[in-house]
Amino acid sequence: MSDDGSQYYSLTGKRVWVNGYRGMVGQALVRRLETIDCEILKTTSDDLDLRRQADAEDWMNDSKPEAVFLCAATVGGIMANDTRPAEFLYDNLAIEANVIHGAWRAGVEKLLYLGTGCMYPREAPQPIPEDCLLTGPLEPTNEWYAVAKIAGLKMCQAYRRQYGCDFITALPTNLYGPGDNFDPQDSHVIPALIQKAHAAKTEGAKSMEVWGSGAPLREFLYVDDA
C-alpha cells in the first residue's frame, strides 16, 4: 500500500519484460528500470516475432516474466499510416493479442499496455477527458492504428473482467525525446519538423514544407517525464 492507502505493484526483485525496448518509449522505460532492483528482460522484433502466437507464448513460458510492459508495435506518422493501413492494423492486433493472451496463460502478475492519444475521437474536446473514448469518429489518417490500439485496451479490460488479470492500459499524450524516429516518411510531427528544419538549414533552403493548416491543438510530453 502507498502512503495514501492506494494499491501499487512493486517491481523490486521482479523479472520485468520490456518488449519493443529499442523504441523511444521502450528505451525510456529501460532507463527508469535500471534505477530499480529488478531483472530486465528485453526483446526486439529481430529475435522474437510477436505476431506469431506460438513464438510469443513459448518465449513467455521459458523466460517467465512477472511483469510486462507491452511497448512493441508497428508505428509511424501520417504518411506511414495512410500508405500501410493493412500492416498497421494486422501487426498491432496480432502483437497485442498474442502478448496479452500469452501473459494470461503464463501467469504474468502485472501487464501495462501502452496506448496512444489517437485512440480518442478526432473532434475530442481539449484537454481530452478520458470518458470521451469511443464517443466519435477517429482521425482518418491514423484510424487503422487507432482501431488496433483500442482493441488492445479492450483486451486488457476483458482479461481483467473474466480472469481477474492485473492488466492495465496507459494512454500517454504525444511523446518526443531520445530514440525518436526521424525518418522523413515515418516520423511523427516533432521529429519530422526537426528533420525538415535541419535539412533546410544544411541545404541552404529559404523555406520548408509543413503539412496541415497549423490549426489543430496538440499536447506534447518529453518521454522521460511520461
Rank of each mutant, 00 (worst) to 15 (best):
W59Q: 09
M60P: 01
N61Q: 10
S63E: 12
P65K: 01
P65M: 02
E66V: 01
A67W: 06
V68E: 03
V68P: 05
F69A: 02
L70T: 02
L70Q: 12
C71K: 00
C71T: 14
C71I: 13
G76N: 11
G77D: 05
I78L: 10
M79I: 09
A80S: 14
N81D: 01
D82L: 12
T83M: 13
T83F: 11
R84F: 06
P85V: 02
E87V: 14
F88G: 09
Y90P: 01
A94T: 02
I95C: 03
I95P: 07
E96T: 13
E96Y: 06
E96L: 02
E96I: 03
A97N: 15
N98C: 10
I100V: 15
H101M: 13
R105H: 11
R105Q: 15
K110W: 15
L111W: 03
L112F: 12
Y113S: 06
Y113T: 03
L114E: 00
L114H: 02
G115P: 09
C118H: 07
Y120K: 05
Y120Q: 05
E123W: 04
A124N: 10
I128A: 06
I128K: 08
I128M: 06
P129T: 09
P129E: 08
C132N: 02
C132G: 02
L133M: 04
L133C: 00
T135D: 12
T135R: 15
T135C: 14
G136I: 09
P137T: 11
P137H: 11
L138S: 06
E143N: 09
E143G: 05
W144T: 07
W144E: 04
W144V: 01
V147W: 06
A148D: 10
A148E: 10
K149P: 05
K154T: 12
K154S: 08
M155Q: 14
M155C: 07
Q157F: 07
A158M: 08
Q162H: 12
Y163P: 01
Y163K: 12
G164Y: 08
C165L: 11
D166R: 09
I168T: 08
T169H: 05
L171P: 02
L171Y: 15
L171I: 15
T173I: 10
T173Q: 11
N174L: 03
Y176C: 08
Y176I: 05
Y176S: 05
G177H: 05
G177N: 04
P178R: 01
P178M: 05
D180G: 15
D180P: 13
N181A: 06
N181T: 14
P184T: 10
P184Q: 11
Q185T: 11
D186K: 12
S187E: 06
H188K: 15
P191Y: 10
